[in-house]
Design a protein around this nucleic acid. Structure first.
Length: 483
RNA sequence: CGGGGCGUAGCGCAGCCCGGUAGCGCGCCUGCCUUGGGCGCAGGAGGUCCCGAGUUCGAAUCUCGGCGCCCCGACCA
C-alpha cells in the first residue's frame, strides 16, 4: 500500500488552483451542507449543524453572561409594520419574500417573511416598555431569516439562513452606544477565542451601515484568498425605530422619552468563515473549540485486533470522554486506516490517535495533529491530560497562524499609486487615509472593486491625504475586496 | 440582474461537432482477502442523458424556450 498523496487530491480542488471551487468542494465533501431543491437554499447536514450548535452554545453563554435573555418572535411581519421605518424598508424591500395567500384566499394585508426582526420586536417593545424601570430590555432570539438573494453560496449567502439577533432598549443614548460596543466586543472575543479567527473591529461608513441604524459596527475577518468577510454586526439604532414604533417610557425626571435601541447579529455565515480561514488542500481544519469531534481514534486492525487493539481503543475513548473531550472511535471494519486518516483530515478533526499492536506493546498511542501533521507518541495513561493540552495548543496555534497571515496581508499605503499597486498584487487589507466623502468611497468601489470594510474604533490621525482625491485625510480606514 | 461556463448512474467525467442498442473511473451490493496513509481479487446492481416543445423513420447529440448550479462583476450577513 504505497502512500499516494495525490489520490485524495482528486477529492477536492487545490486551494491555490481555484479557491472558490476548493471552498465548495470542502463544504460538500466534509458533509457540512448540501444543495437543496429550493433555489438558493441549502441543507445544513448533521456535521455542519453540530458545528453551529457548538457556536450557538458558546455565543449563547456569552449573551446570558451579559444579562440577555432569549425569546422568540414571529416569522411573518405585516407589510404595514415593515413600512414604518422609511430607511429600513427601503433597504430591505428588494430582498423580502412576500406571503400573499393563506390557502386559496388572498390576504387582506401582505406579510413579509422576516429579513430581520426590528419591526415586529419594536412593535412588541412599545407594549412592554412604559417606565425607565422596564429598561434596559435585553432580548436575543435564535431564528431563521429570509433575504431574497440573487447570487448565493453555501453558508456565505443563502436565501434562508440561521442567526441570532439581539434587540435591546435603553434609557439613554450613552447606554445604547455602550451596549452596541459591548456586543461588538463579545463578537470579537467569540471569533478569536472560539473560531480562532482574528477580526478587525470598527465602524461602518454611512453607505454601508444597516438600513435604519444610526451607527453600524462590524468585525471583519480575512479569508485565505485575501478577501474580507463581515463576520458580525452591531447597530446603534438611536431613536429611529422607537419613534416610529412608539416605544416610549416615563423617565426618572417624569418626562416622556423615546427608548434608545440596539440590534446585533451573527449568522451561519461564520461556518464559511472558519472554513476559509483555516482550511488547506486536504480539507477542513476545525478549531478544537467548535469541532464536533476533537479527536478521532483509529484502531489498527492487525491479527486478532478485536481482542487486543479494540479494547485499548475503547478505554482510551472512555478516558477522553470522561475528561470532557469530544471523541469519535472509528472502528468501522470496511475502511482501512489510511482511508480513515484521509477522511477525518478532510472533515477537519483536530487530533487523530492511531493505536495498533506496536503501540500497545509500548503502552502508547500515536497522536497526529491535523494542522501540522506532527506525530508524537503519548503514553496511554497520559492521553487525557496530554490531549487536552494539545487541543488548547492547537487552538492557539490556529489563531496565531491566522493572525500572522492577516498581518502579512495587511499593507499601509499613503499614495494613490501605492494603493492601486497594493490591490493589484495579492489581496488583503489595505490601510489608507480617506477624506470621509462618500464620493471617494464609491469611486474606489467602482474602479477597484474595493470597499471600506470599516473605520477603526479609535481612528489614528490620517497618515496622509485621501487616497482618492488627495484632500486632507480624515482618518485611516481598512479597505479590502470582500465577500 | 449583466458577462462567461456547465447540467449524462450516488460523485467525477467521456460520448454531442458528424443523429442510429448509453460508456469509463470512483463509490455502492455479494463473497473471498486483511487493514500502520484513500489495500487486492471475483461477481453484481444501478440511467425520465436537467425539464418542455420542435425537426427527423429515429434525438444524450440538431433548433427554440425554460429551470438549476458554478465562476467573474453590480446588491447583501
Amino acid at each position: 500500500m504505497p502512500a499516494k498523496q495525490d489520490t485524495f487530491v482528486t477529492e477536492i480542488t487545490p486551494r491555490s488552483e481555484d479557491f472558490s471551487r476548493w471552498y465548495t468542494d470542502v463544504v460538500r465533501r466534509a458533509e457540512l451542507a448540501d444543495y437543496s431543491p429550493v433555489k438558493g437554499s441549502m441543507v445544513i447536514r448533521p456535521y455542519g449543524y453540530a458545528v453551529w450548535e457548538l457556536m450557538q452554545a458558546s455565543l449563547d453563554a456569552r449573551f446570558k453572561a451579559t444579562g440577555h435573555v432569549n425569546a422568540y418572535f414571529p416569522l411573518f411581519i405585516p407589510e404595514s409594520l415593515l413600512r414604518k421605518e422609511a430607511a429600513h424598508v427601503e433597504g430591505f424591500a428588494p430582498q423580502v419574500a412576500w406571503v400573499t395567500h393563506g390557502g386559496d384566499e388572498e390576504l387582506e394585508e401582505r406579510l413579509v417573511v422576516r429579513p430581520t426582526s426590528e419591526a415586529i420586536i419594536g412593535t412588541m417593545y412599545a407594549k412592554w416598555i412604559q417606565s425607565w424601570r422596564d429598561l434596559p430590555l435585553l432580548i436575543n432570539q435564535w431564528a431563521n431569516v429570509v433575504r431574497w438573494e440573487k447570487v448565493t453560496r453555501l453558508f456565505l449567502r443563502t436565501t434562508e439562513f440561521l442567526w441570532q439577533e439581539g434587540h435591546t432598549a435603553h434609557e439613554t443614548r450613552e447606554e445604547a452606544e455602550a451596549e452596541a460596543l459591548r456586543m461588538l466586543g463579545v463578537y470579537k472575543d467569540f471569533a478569536e477565542s472560539e473560531l480562532a479567527m482574528p477580526v478587525r473591529d470598527g465602524r461602518k461608513t454611512e453607505s454601508e451601515k444597516f438600513a435604519g441604524a444610526e451607527v453600524t459596527y462590524s468585525i471583519e475577518a480575512l479569508m485565505g484568498d485575501g478577501r474580507a468577510l463581515q463576520a458580525g454586526t452591531s447597530h446603534m439604532l438611536g431613536q429611529n425605530f422607537s419613534k416610529v414604533f412608539d416605544i416610549k417610557f416615563q423617565a426618572r425626571d417624569k418626562s416622556l422619552q423615546y427608548a434608545w435601541q440596539t440590534s446585533w447579529g451573527m449568522t451561519t455565515r461564520l461556518i464559511g468563515g472558519v472554513i476559509m480561514t483555516h482550511g488547506d488542500d486536504s480539507g477542513l481544519i476545525l478549531p478544537p473549540r467548535i469541532a464536533p469531534y476533537q479527536v478521532v481514534i483509529v484502531p489498527i486492525p492487525r491479527g486478532n485486533w478485536q481482542e487486543t487493539v479494540l479494547p485499548r481503543a475503547r478505554e482510551a475513548a472512555a478516558a477522553l470522554t470522561a475528561a470532557g473531550v469530544r471523541v469519535m472511535l472509528d472502528d468501522r471494519e470496511e475502511y482501512t486506516p489510511g482511508w480513515k486518516y484521509a477522511e477525518w483530515e478532510l472533515r477537519g478533526v483536530p487530533l487523530r490517535i492511531e493505536i495498533g499492536p506496536r503501540d500497545i506493546a509500548k503502552s502508547q498511542a500515536l497522536v497526529v495533529r491535523r494542522d501540522t501533521r506532527e506525530k508524537l507518541p503519548v503514553p496511554l495513561d497520559e492521553l487525557a491530560a496530554r490531549l487536552r493540552a494539545l487541543l488548547a495548543a492547537l487552538q492557539q496555534d490556529l489563531l496565531d497562524r491566522a493572525l500572522k497571515f492577516r498581518d502579512d496581508h495587511t499593507r499601509r499605503v499613503t499614495t494613490r499609486d501605492a494603493f492601486e499597486e497594493a490591490l493589484r498584487g495579492r489581496p488583503g487589507f489595505v490601510v489608507a487615509p480617506w477624506c470621509g466623502r462618500e464620493e471617494c468611497e464609491t469611486g474606489i468601489k467602482a474602479d477597484m472593486q474595493t470597499t471600506i470594510r470599516n473605520i477603526p474604533l479609535e481612528p489614528p490621525p490620517a497618515s496622509g491625504g485621501c487616497i482618492r482625491c488627495g484632500n486632507p485625510g480624515l482618518t485611516d480606514v481598512y479597505f479590502a475586496k470582500s465577500y
